[in-house]
Design a protein around this nucleic acid. Structure first.
Lengths: 348, 348
DNA sequence: CATCGGTGAGACAACGTTGTCTTGCAGTAG
DNA sequence: CTACTGCAAGACAACGTTGTCTCACCGATG
């Protein structure tokens, strides 16, 4: 049912042609900057465009054009509200905008179905390419959801079953460095608190943790798996409610780190238990003690992914590449605490 | 110049029709779920769709359809990388996804020209509506950039020169409450640290600050204006390098608050100078002392804005509305410190 | 048995634009 | 003066889809 004064129609090229007294095609030529138009006609067309406030219909143009570019890319991240994804998103946007390209974005929330739905939705909207932080462990669906030839760059996690560039943090090495750092400060009982093993980056960081323990001839204790900070908080409380609690924690994700910090505060152990987190977070330097982290560089990851994607969109057809973005240990205090014997305490 | 094996073409409805042995229009009917197709034909069509991996061309469909919806909205925020915008963005996305709508987003960075360019770009891509956090002080350009009838909802800041709903935090009242709180704890010299007066929310918060001082018969000191946290940090250092420094700070934006916290730490005044910030931020409860804030609710703002927008998109034509999202004072410690005479100190 | 109404399915045009082809005209050479 | 070249600008079709119209066929009705 149409409303009476429902959305007035936009003027079309035809309207412009009529008011300028030229043919439709001449308007098209002026709009597209083709040089074969007499100056006085071009001027009349531009005047008509201004008068009618004509704006080209990108959809129609893209339908007819040969190159079929929408100057729009799709970005699928874990959660646009979390600082890591937000920083990555921002870097992608800056690269895109520099090229006059715009961004369709969605949060995947560790849900493979949602990942697939978003990929499809962006494909239907004719994204020229996709940047994907995979949630599921199989991206072969992309072959059927995307038009053949649509480039995809995977970021943060390796994609599987579809050929695309990858931009990855040095998760294993970074985690090893973090745990070595704790060992160098005398720790022998170092707990791992991290994400579900379903998540590839969590697996890599756990491997790095095991590597470092192995080098030092240490046995890993049992490994809880968790995700949200409140889970991390209660898991930490539980950990210190048992006998032989660890003297140091390696927390493998920023929300987990924050949960652990909270728990150690509640237990008044924040000056006794050493802590190194994977992935930096805002204000890590302002808590007491400041939190030592292995920082990722989400901006560099976003920038690199976007540049790789634009190279592919511009026709680069070389085999898939891997870009490794280095992590950096930032010593702030919590990771340099010496081992301190801790008695088991009741959970608060 | 075409690449040899350049992007293979997608199958079209025509291809599906040919392999299913029916007419183009019958395929269209099946795709759109029209009931007037014989079951055995519909089945053949669906089989052909699967076999060819047919996906409808949303652009072509939208060109021909009567309703002209792309099920895409545009969102213009201050900076998708900052926590306030990111939280708001996330809330918008959740509302949108629940309706099968997707999000084009861009950061305005306090740049009115960029605001306008993004609005135009999203209009060209046929966003069904826009959520805008205005950077400039005049949004009348929207009338010419947008197709008539495109709804716009302003969020965080009032829009000017274009009729749209607004979703706003109670900036004046919230700031008044913050400053009253400091006055109630005995403070008489309370400094304001906030954004440029060009920014409407900064003006409102300054007004709220003046209101509270006025009630108590206090004179405002000089007001520095700043934006980024490092500016806030040095401005705070300067403030305490002068004679008669304040005993309390009201910081009118989250990055400013963080800068002030940093500066007070460097000056070792964080336990002596009271601080209330406008807008909450992650880990505000973990720094020492925990930071008292007037919290906004960016998720509620995003949710409200998105719901208002979808009502408009669905045809609601009532006059522009204003939604006021309440702020809440969260007492954490820094705002409850009593006045403490502070001698001017040299900047570190 | 002729006519009618209802229904499923195809033919055709149209959405707003661009690629290709054609036309018309001016300028130049034969 | 005619023929040819070159170029500006219009005519027309096409992109992939949906709205509208028409047709064919069915069973039901007089």
């Amino acid at each position: 049912m149409r409303q009476p004064d429902d959305r007035a129609v936009r003027p079309t090229m035809n309207d412009v042609a009529r008011t300028a007294g030229v043919s439709l095609k001449t308007v098209s030529r002026v709009i597209n900057g083709e040089p074969t138009v007499a100056p006085h006609l071009a001027e009349r067309v531009r005047a008509a465009v201004d008068a009618l406030r004509y704006r080209p219909n990108l959809g129609a143009s893209m339908l007819r054009r040969n190159d079929r570019r929408t100057r729009t890319i799709g970005v699928l991240l874990e959660d646009v509200g979390n600082p890591f994804s937000a920083a990555l998103h921002r870097a992608v946007e800056d690269e895109a905008l520099a090229r006059g390209v715009h961004v369709l974005i969605g949060s995947v929330d560790e849900n493979p179905q949602r990942e697939r739905d978003l990929a499809r939705a962006f494909a239907e909207r004719h994204a020229d390419g996709l940047i994907v932080a995979p949630a599921g462990d199989d991206q072969s669906y992309l072959a059927s959801e995307l038009p053949a030839g649509t480039p995809v760059v995977f970021v943060d996690r390796q994609g599987t079953g579809f050929a695309g560039d990858s931009v990855l943090a040095t998760n294993v090495v970074g985690a090893t460095e973090a745990v070595r750092h704790l060992i160098a400060h005398g720790h022998r009982r170092i707990a791992f608190l991290g994400d579900h093993a379903r998540i590839a980056t969590a697996r890599s960081r756990y491997r790095g943790y095991l590597d470092a323990l192995g080098e030092a001839g240490l046995e890993p204790p049992a490994k809880p798996e968790l995700h949200h900070w409140s889970t991390a908080e209660s898991a930490t409380l539980t950990l210190f409610g048992r006998d032989h609690p660890p003297t140091a924690l390696f927390t493998a994700q920023n929300l987990v780190t924050i949960g652990a910090v909270r728990a150690l505060r509640r237990l008044r152990l924040h000056r006794d238990v050493a802590l190194v987190g994977f992935d930096d977070f805002p204000l890590a330097d302002l808590v007491e003690p400041a939190v030592t982290v292995v920082a990722q560089d989400p901006a560099a990851m976003g920038r690199t992914a976007a540049r790789a994607l634009f190279e592919r969109i511009d026709g680069d057809r070389q085999p898939p590449r891997e870009f490794w973005i280095p992590t950096a240990l930032i010593r702030r205090g919590s990771g340099e605490l010496p081992p301190h014997p801790v008695r088991a305490r009741a959970t608060l």
